[in-house]
Design a protein around this nucleic acid. Structure first.
Lengths: 239, 239
DNA sequence: CGACGCGTTGAATGTTGTCAAACCGAGTGG
DNA sequence: CCACTCGGTTTGACAACATTCAACGCGTCG
């Protein structure tokens, strides 16, 4: 009965997906999970740099990362890219398109990734008969707002050091939630992506990493990170 | 039949409210407006510095500004206030609380203001029978996310000049939407609020205003603003 | 009147950005 | 196999923009 569990295998249903405690409302009954499962579309894995959707695409679905990682970004009025989020397994993205006929951001795989697609019109229909699902999606959207507001505060009030410490700890806890190491991990995104997301230049990001290493807060080797002094990183991140 | 229309009068129903094209979904039928109207609660106007809700309060309702203006703010992990938004007549606030048992931000009147309160549980019930209302609220939440992401981009990528030009133009168009002057208006918020919102110090905000005046982009007298050169302000704001 | 809140202005400081150069590892083609 | 390029990263020197600290102006209110 032990199925081979390739991390990017795309035929896993919601009931057996290891991520389901993250992306599904806890309250859902087994038959309700089946109903949701029936509308979820699972395609072939996306390769690094493949787009899941683009700004101009008609809004159709929201997405959940099952394996790998995704970055979303928007092009602002001056034509400059703004990275708006990094998404790891169990996390939902594409929600920001709901108010518009088209997606307002683009989503791109940072590495080979398996992605679940949830057609939004089907989800709306299903929500009517499953109040707990509707409530769950309100909460997911609301959480997205909360996250954005925390990022706003981070950008508005914190130094480069504090921003980077905060991001590293955020990735750390999100790893831990998936039963991975919270202290050793590989960053799927480039320095440029980090800088773009945090409102810093690549050079500043690089310098802060180097300084953190000199201060024995962490070890860094390209994208491999080992957090050495979480308590002091938390002080920096104001946690 | 001409009723006295005190701007803060609180017995106006949704059907006759001048703001309803802003806060209601266009598609709503007359009898549907009545249904919504029945659940909207209108209290006595809030005075300047009165709280509409506070961070610790249990989440119960979302709110719409009918007259006056409101500022929302959150206290971040380090105990510092972060202004998260300014709201003018027709605009909805309090949405960010949906994912949580309590509000995650606080809302305070910047001047004497009339506020409509929409109990969220009633709204959820009503949404089930009024699909267009449900859709509308998804869109409102989504728009909130969009706004936040634009602010993120502004904070992340733009200079003090650009941030302030953007805010002024935003207030300008929101005024124009309410058939008020888009070029002459009074700011309801302090320099400190503006700086807090835009990630700048009061001194910087003040200096930018002065410089804009020297450059004949606008006239400033305390909180009275007159935009003189909208095209060049738009260039600054990358519009 | 004096205290206070709010806004403005000046001078000095500092964090971050800009520009430039070099490094490193992974591919690629000769 | 080596030289080469290329993208991503690091580091240094310098400049710029925003902050900090300080003082002052102005209106309101006790």
């Amino acid at each position: 009965m032990a199925t081979t569990t390739c991390p990017h295998h795309h035929e896993v249903n919601c009931g057996q997906c290891r991520m389901n405690t993250l992306c599904l409302p806890i309250a859902l009954q087994i038959e309700e999970v089946d109903q949701l499962n029936a509308i979820v579309q699972r395609g072939r894995p996306f390769q690094k740099d493949d787009h899941i959707f683009r700004t101009a695409d008609p809004f159709k679905s929201v997405y959940v990362v099952r394996s790998g990682s995704v970055k979303t970004y928007a092009i602002n009025d001056s034509g400059i890219e703004q990275v708006t989020g990094f998404y790891f397994p169990g996390e939902i993205f594409g929600i920001d398109g709901i108010a518009h006929p088209h997606y307002i951001s683009s989503a791109i795989a940072l590495e080979t990734s398996a992605i679940c697609e949830i057609p939004f019109s089907r989800l709306e229909e299903l929500s009517v008969s499953l109040p707990s699902l509707q409530r769950h999606f309100f909460r997911v959207m609301s959480r997205e707002i909360t996250n954005d507001q925390q990022l706003i505060s981070l950008l508005s009030k914190n130094s480069a050091d504090e921003r980077i410490a905060t991001l590293l700890l955020s990735i750390s806890v999100r790893n831990a939630r998936r039963d991975l190491s919270g202290t050793r991990f590989r960053l799927p995104m480039s320095r440029a992506d980090i800088g773009n997301y945090l409102g810093l230049t690549v050079e500043t990001v690089s310098r802060v990493f180097s300084r953190f290493q000199r201060q024995r807060l962490l070890n860094v080797d390209k994208r491999e990170i080992e957090l050495l002094d979480v308590p002091n990183l938390q002080v920096l991140a104001n946690i």
